[in-house]
Structures are given as C-alpha cells and as structure tokens.
C-alpha cells in the first residue's frame, strides 16, 4: 500500500541545515497497524505529514496505492487526502462553531456529496464511535474522549484506506485513552491501515508493527520482545 524509499527532509534554520528525516525506508501493507515512537523532535510527526501528503520531502520516493506522490500537484494531493486518508490529531482539530455532526460532515461536504447521503453517512459513523446522542453538541459541550471520537468519526466517514493518528491519546485521561485505542484497533480489525505516532507506550505496544524514530532515523523493532522494545522507548 505504501512504499517509502530513502526519504529525506531538511529544514533550514539560518545558516544551519537540519536533517529531520534521514533515509526513511518503510513498506506498509493494507491492514497494517504500525506505531511510531520516539523522543520529541525526532521527526515522527514530520514523517506522518509526509505519509498524509500534508508536507513534501526533499529526496526519495513515496508510492501510495501505486501512485508516485512526488509528481502530484497540490490539487491531486488534496483529492487523495480527502478520499484515501483519515487524520486524527492530538488536539482533535474540531471547528468550535460546528456541531459534532457538522464536523464529521466536513470531508463529505468537500467531496460534494449530496445532503441526503451525507446525513446517512454521518449518522452511521457517529453510531460507530458511540456518539449518536451527541450529534448536535458543539465541541465546547463534550469531554476530551468524546472530542477524539468525533475526530475519529470524521477520519473514517470517507471510508479511507489509511488512518494517520498523531498522538491520539496525548490529550486524554487514561480511561478515554483506552477507549480510543480500542476504537483504533477495531478499525484496524475491519481492514483499515493505521499508523500511529505516539509517546504512549501502552498504545505503541499494542500495534502489530512497532517502529522507533530517533534523530530522523526510523527502525522497526521485532515483535515478541516487549522488554527490548520497552527499554528502547523508556530511554527517550
């Protein structure tokens, strides 16, 4: 589904050039559930932005569903983001003036779907995340866990193949965090590919594939050796 080959990304800060992604090579198959852990500033979020076509890299190659992404223009990248990728952010990124249902409806509006179709799909995904009774509530009237569930509903309403979650439990209490983890796992069981960037060891451990990122370099840790994984991650 995703083939990253020697991806490099540089940031210029004055006279200094910072290499934030260092020869990243990664293959992700349909239905994978990958966690990426690493210290702050290691390049996790930058990598996630590359995967979500929100940012561009300087060198390397990125194929998504067989499409060479570096040759796409902004219009094409926007269309792929809307149709194939669902985003979940640490700070939820919900629009305050809109209700939960209206927030979830946004990708469908941008995709110019009919109001009737939109209504059905929104009701369906809100039920899926257990928020049917909160459809008319605005973000200010909901708890952190509920807000993240609205964000997940918005991420899946277009039925994308890929879910990219950036610290999805970062702003949640333990109980809400567990609910979100369970929800992501359920989505993965239904066949969605999930890539999670997290500081949450519990979340990171539950992924099918575990990656660690340090100073822009990505490495995958073997499954089954929780102790080794924990020792690496705890060292951050």
């Amino acid at each position: 589904m995703i083939q990253l080959d020697k991806i490099n990304k540089y940031y210029k800060t004055g006279a200094e050039t910072l290499r934030v992604l260092n020869d990243i090579t990664l293959n992700i198959e349909q239905g994978d559930y990958i966690s990426i852990m690493g210290p702050s500033g290691s390049g996790k979020s930058t990598l996630l932005n590359m995967l979500g076509l929100l940012d561009v890299f300087d060198t390397g190659s990125y194929r998504l569903e067989g499409v060479q992404t570096e040759v796409l223009d902004e219009e094409q990248r926007a269309r792929i983001r809307g149709e194939n990728i669902g985003f979940i952010f640490q700070s939820f990124q919900l629009i305050d003036r809109l209700t939960a249902a209206e927030n979830v409806e946004l990708p469908l509006i941008l995709d110019e779907q009919s109001p009737k179709e939109r209504k059905q799909k929104v009701a369906h995904v809100l039920a899926q995340v257990g928020l049917s009774d909160r459809a008319t509530h605005r973000p200010g009237q909901m708890s952190g866990g509920q807000l993240q569930r609205v964000a997940i509903a918005r991420a899946i309403v277009m039925q994308p193949q890929l879910i990219l979650a950036d610290e999805p439990t970062g702003n949640l209490d333990q109980k809400s965090g567990k609910e979100i983890v369970a929800l992501l796992e359920e989505l993965n069981r239904k066949g969605l590919t999930v890539v999670v960037v997290t500081h949450d060891l519990a979340l990171g451990k539950r992924a099918k594939r575990r990656c660690v990122m340090v100073d822009g370099e990505l490495s995958e840790t073997p499954m089954g050796d929780d102790t080794a994984y924990e020792s690496i991650v705890m060292g951050f």
Binding site: L54, E75, A78
Partner: peptide, 16 residues
C-alpha cells in the same frame, strides 16, 4: 490558520 489547515487536510484544494 488551523481551521484552514484542517480543511486542506480533509481534502480542500487551494481553490476551494
């Protein structure tokens, strides 16, 4: 800016 960025992440083109 955050709202606009979000819309772009959700599939809004520059033109939209």
């Amino acid at each position: 800016r955050a709202e606009i960025g979000l819309l772009k992440a959700l599939g809004a083109s520059i033109r939209t």
